[in-house]
Amino acid sequence: MTAMKSVRFREAIRMGMVEEMERDDRVFIVGEEVGHYQGAYKVTEGMLDKFGPKRVIDAPITESGFTGISIGAAMVGLRPIVEYMTWNFSAVAFDQILNNAAKIRQMSGGQLHVPIVLRAPNASAKQVGSQHSHAMEHFYTHVPGLKVVAPSTCADAKGLIKSAIRDDDPVLYMESETLYNLKGDVPEDPEFLVPLGKANVVREGGDVTIISWSRLVHISLQAAEQLAKEGIDAEVIDVRSLRPLDEETLVASVTKTHRAVVAYEGWPYGGVGAEIVDRIQRLAFDDLDAPIERVTTLDYPMPYNAKLEQFVIPNVERIVGAAKRVAYRSA
């Protein structure tokens, strides 16, 4: 039995980073307020003391600059971790991520590569308004050359950040401010890794498959509880890795349940959810008994008002409703 430790989500990420920085001195972290301030969301708390300012680097508000610097450093052998205060601000560095991080391996004919991790909280927080609530995975998963992961549990948070750091390509790691205080057991083993590209069945069931990631996994589990009371046995899949995508696990589940709902934050036009629906309908067409439904953020910029924000983001009720519809059991 491996020893387990009960930690919060933010500590699980930190454990993973600290272990990898101890293991490999090419790894460093850069971002706004990651050092002296101990992290805007305290993810990097204590790391400056432990590793010093050479490896825990406070940067001014220069997302494009410190992303580019990190990509450059990665091209010649370092392994940077870049923290954005939130993923929203990565938009300022979008060109660096799209045109440099993602392309250098191919443009150079495979001579160079970019082993970099970009990480930050993603999607809605609480009433932070239209410019601070973006689900950025939908923009980045579109890009060949990038990998994107979004853990929902503490163990996965640790295991995936470690795999991301060890990966030789750019990995975008998406957290959620709403999960930072979540408690969970994580293996203490410094070789505990969660591989990229593997989904996790977090609840088994036979009637409908609910597919989600990050914060929405927890909402989907609540929806599954409610569905159980109404006689619908839902299977819940935590995708974890959005690119590469574990289509085998998704298809195996739908082959069993014949129905699927994809629930996530982000707008309905395109995006990861649409990609998942496309894969399932192509790979499991004969097994489907109903059109797949998506439960997304509604098709508007995020409003500030608390009730409107709740109205716009996916919730238990909408997931339950979608699950019933695909099961032809409308209330």
Binding site: F89, A91, S130, P303, Y304, N305
Partner: peptide, 27 residues
Amino acid sequence: CSKGLGGSMHFFDAEHNMLGGYGIVGG
């Protein structure tokens, strides 16, 4: 002043030529 859609960071008042508070630094 922004109909409750903007919040603290996004005050807009076109009548007074206050063309907004913006949340992305520098943007």
